[in-house]
Write a protein that binds this DNA or RNA. Structure first.
Lengths: 199, 199, 199, 199
DNA sequence: CATGAATGAGTTTTCATTCAT
DNA sequence: GATGAATGAAAACTCATTCAT
């Protein structure tokens, strides 16, 4: 404890401040002073806790991705899947993802931001890519027994692409959560039935 | 020819230069001088042909969206749909879209850029939104007879969301065109069969 | 005729345009294009008729000063001073000056502009200075017989300074013409009576 | 001391630098870098202490006007007017004003600059106007008992207009201080005698 | 003569980063 | 650890002036 923890706490404070800033302005338009003000910290200190602005960004990317991944892991481990069919497991996964990720407008904004940054920033790109891969990997498990590893992964790749497309659309179209949820669930149902047609 | 044309030509030249610039850097990082250099034009001229940097952007958004919309319209009007089923029409649409839009990596990069800009730029947002709406409207035609207007639109909304999600993934994952096409076509087939199951 | 006259006409047109511009913006803020637009002439032509922006200014200074001087001369020569006392002559002069110069708000604005420019522009300064000298010289004539050349000039120097101070105040205080005239005339009366007390 | 004082000190330093700059160039020609160089300060700092160039100007106007007003107030409060006649009080006021204001060439230059700026700058105009009003108000006190409030004010309005006209002439004519003082005092004497004739 | 495209130096302003206190 | 003053590179934008057509 002590030093290290204060360090980490401050860093987290700054990272969360950047998160809030990104809901107001683009990363490029967000200044060091904006972040500092939002964090309630002297702007000079940001360079004490982070070498440069980009490092805050990288820290933030790590934070936001880890956070949602960990929450997912925790949810998954708490799931009782004993007597669920593969279809039910997948459906349950989609329900979780809808609520926590796809219908979370602020998160969607942040993701759009990160996609754009990743276009010209290798580090951000590789972090995002890795998380998508892990997400797809985890989610395609229920499909493997029916489709084999490779096809299961491809299907899940498409599923997640769809979810991200919907997340983006919800922001661009300024959609209400309920409207968005309805479209989302109907299409997911269609896909689920296509994947597990016997039911 | 003459005045008007030189003006328009130069504006197009500048807009296309911005297009190329956006493949190298973000819009915010792209400077007026970058665009000028790329266009082979004195940077002072950019302010002669456009009031400010944002106007170039708006011109570019208009250009890129109009261009692809017009190409689509031209393609559609050249289509012989006389003896095609609704399913075939939709499939044909998806094939066109795959090749011209979704699998066009450079275009996808530009779109990611525009999504991000639209987060904090109303004008860009409304232009993008309008184009997506038109696109969905046009594409859902073959579904209307089977599903009714509203449902047809919702399904197409999801379809286009999927395509955009795939476009984004192709960039983030640095996917090869063929790999991407395969995943795309398989999932589209699955959805097509779900929509028109009789076949 | 011909060439020369067209030249001069155009130059006058431009100079008058500058005059109108100066009522809207400072000289520094007035651009070549502003003047051209106001004159209804292509801006490239301004450099055909005048070597540079400053030359237009110098032309304008010359124009505005000559114009009012000539009008004064014409008025003076039309005056019937045969049976007027010196005091009446001076009073008549002041009345003319009040109406044509001091109470002319637009002219006052222009003069303030010229004073400021003259601070850092020798040519403008010397033109203004010369005109004030001539003005004082002409106006002090009626005083010479009573006060001698030197004192007459000094008194008139003060009188004109007062008029210019009032012109400036009328602009800074945004005074109505009538209010201004009243103050002006009362003080002039006081001075007149001080100069020619016998009446 | 500390923070606040450094801030104020730097602001004053910058404002005084602008003052010196204005003796060399017009406000419009004076660049941020000119002011910074004159102040011996990095030009970036000017935007640290002042939001924009105009704010420096407004600060300067406030500074220069307050400064001379305060000096005048201090002088007035130190005056022993106990056994002075109204005429003597007014004469004393004029002597003070002559020395500190009207015959101060650099100050006159600054005022001409401010008049010109005020033509197109409401804030500067209202500041100048207010100061002139206060000045007239204070100075017309000795006249009130003889002329009534309104007439006293009108007379003083003219007096101050005269002083400002003379200040302007001293600059335009490049007059020596002594020459200027002589003309000034003679005319003031004439007016004084006109106002208080009994003596 | 007329036009308006082209040039490029110059202006204000912003901001990440550094550093003395 | 804080603080906020200082630096300087770089950005968007302006505009007098030139010049090809």
């Amino acid at each position: 404890m002590g030093r290290k923890n204060i360090q980490q706490e401050r860093q987290l404070q700054i990272i969360k401040a950047l998160n809030r800033c990104l809901l107001k302005k683009s990363y490029k338009e967000t200044t060091i002073k904006d972040i500092a003000a939002e964090a309630g910290i002297n702007h000079g200190m940001l360079h004490y806790y982070f070498k440069e602005k980009e490092e805050i960004l990288l820290g933030f990317v790590d934070f936001i991705l880890s956070k949602h991944k960990n929450e997912f892991i925790r949810w998954r481990d708490a799931q009782q899947t004993g007597d669920m069919t593969q279809k039910e497991i997948l459906k349950s996964f989609l329900q979780y993802t809808n609520e926590k990720i796809t219908l979370n407008r602020n998160l969607s904004k942040v993701f759009i931001t990160l996609w754009e940054i990743s276009l010209n920033n290798r580090k951000v790109k590789s972090q995002i890519k890795r998380v998508y891969q892990e997400w797809i990997e985890l989610a395609c498990e229920p499909l493997k027994s029916s489709f084999g590893d490779e096809s299961a992964k491809q299907i899940m790749f498409s599923m997640v692409a769809y979810l991200e497309g919907m997340a983006m659309f919800s922001v661009v179209f300024n959609m209400g959560k309920d409207e968005n949820r309805q479209i989302l669930e109907r299409f997911e149902e269609r896909i689920l039935n296509s994947i597990f047609p016997e039911e």
